[in-house]
Every structure is written in structure tokens, then in C-alpha cells.
């Protein structure tokens, strides 16, 4: 299992478009991907869940990846967050 945290820097937070892109990215991996904020954890492959976190600029999110391709998934998802959020 891989886990990392990230603090949102995008002024608009995880709004619809990046949420969609993040879900798409998460779905491309075999591993399960969970995303949590303030103790509430959701499946990162489900868009309603991800949008429902209402993560804003300055909020910390924790990503947990588990499965066969977890190393690759964690690295790529972290890079995605840094580049887009």
C-alpha cells in the first residue's frame, strides 16, 4: 500500500474538470485508489465521491493506492496533482 498527502494549491479547488481528469487517471490503474479529506474517504474512481469532498485551496488530501501497480499509480497520480491542482 502506498500513501501520500497533498495540499491543494489551485485557487478553485477540485472543481468539476480536474475532478473528472483525476478520476480518469485513477481509473487507468488496476490498483484501488482512495482519496480522503478530514477523515472522509471516497473511491477516487467515482466522480461524485471525488467532487463530494469539496476540496478547496489549502485543504490537505490523502491518497491511498493499493494493488499490483501501486508504485506507478502513486507516482503518476502525485505528478498529476502537482501539475493540475
Amino acid at each position: 500500500m502506498k500513501e501520500f498527502s497533498y495540499v491543494i494549491t489551485d485557487p478553485e479547488g477540485i472543481h468539476a474538470r480536474p475532478a473528472g481528469e483525476f478520476v480518469k487517471a485513477a481509473k487507468s490503474f488496476e490498483s484501488s485508489v482512495k482519496i480522503a479529506k478530514d477523515g472522509k474517504q471516497v473511491d477516487a474512481k467515482r466522480i461524485f465521491g471525488v467532487m463530494g469532498l469539496a476540496a478547496k485551496q489549502g485543504h490537505e488530501i490523502v491518497i491511498t493506492v493499493e494493488g499490483a501497480d501501486e508504485d506507478k499509480a502513486a507516482a503518476e497520480l502525485e505528478a498529476f496533482l502537482k501539475a493540475n491542482l
Partner: peptide, 19 residues
């Protein structure tokens, strides 16, 4: 593209497992 993206999101919503 930026404004069209919402319709891609809408498609993803229709695939959302919770939904």
C-alpha cells in the same frame, strides 16, 4: 475544449458506480 469538458464530466457521472 475547456467549456466542452463539462459534457465529458456528464458522461463520467453516468458511469459513476455509486449512481
Amino acid at each position: 475544449e475547456a467549456n466542452a469538458a463539462i459534457f465529458e464530466i456528464h458522461q463520467m457521472m453516468l458511469d459513476d458506480e455509486d449512481y
